[in-house]
Amino acid sequence: MSIGILGTKVGMTQIFDDAGKAVPVTVIQAGPCKVTQVKTKDTDGYEAIQIGYGETREKLLTKPQKGHLAKSGAGSLRHLKEYRVDSAGEYELGQELKADLFEAGQIIDVSGRTIGRGFAGNQKRHNFRRGPMTHGSKNHRAPGSTGAGTTPGRIYPGKRMAGRLGNDKVTLRKLTVVKVDAEQNLLLVKGSVPGKPGALLSIAPTNKVGNK
């Protein structure tokens, strides 16, 4: 359990490593974030840090949001997120978190929302195969059979059908930080991350599962 940071996807490019190989990287604008709330065992029953990210206009916030942000003097921030930590006492209200939280070579988890694809058919959404396009076939992208007839007389729950695809929260685990630019608050992460450029991302040290 350790603290993460919020950021924005900027886009992808490639850089050359020491061996001269081209490495595909995603550029992430990570932070600056401000600590907006410190939750301790005494006050909330668990230890956590709430951070805020993304300057916004004051008039876009509601009165309760303004009141909450005023306590830490963090200004008008758009996104709030909580990270569980071992001891929240190390952090103080209004403290700034920057990209130098991470170092090159570190393994991280990145979560965000995937690109929304709207109402998608079975080929795109569930990788169904399509019917023949020619030889008199009219069954091109149809879903096929959805089950038996009079018995059971209904479609079983969970039957894969067309519907909304994308815009789901996804966490990509064990990505490598290739480079950290502390001055501009940039992280270069090997590989791709969810969403389009401009998407909100949560970056945290990787979550180890099991016994070490």
Binding site: V10, G11, M12, T13, I15, F16, Q29, Q184, L186, P197
Partner: peptide, 15 residues
């Protein structure tokens, strides 16, 4: 700097 300008400045170091 934003977006593509930022990416171009990163690439510029190695071009």
């Amino acid at each position: 700097m934003k977006g593509q300008a930022l990416i171009r400045s990163i690439e510029a170091e190695q071009i």
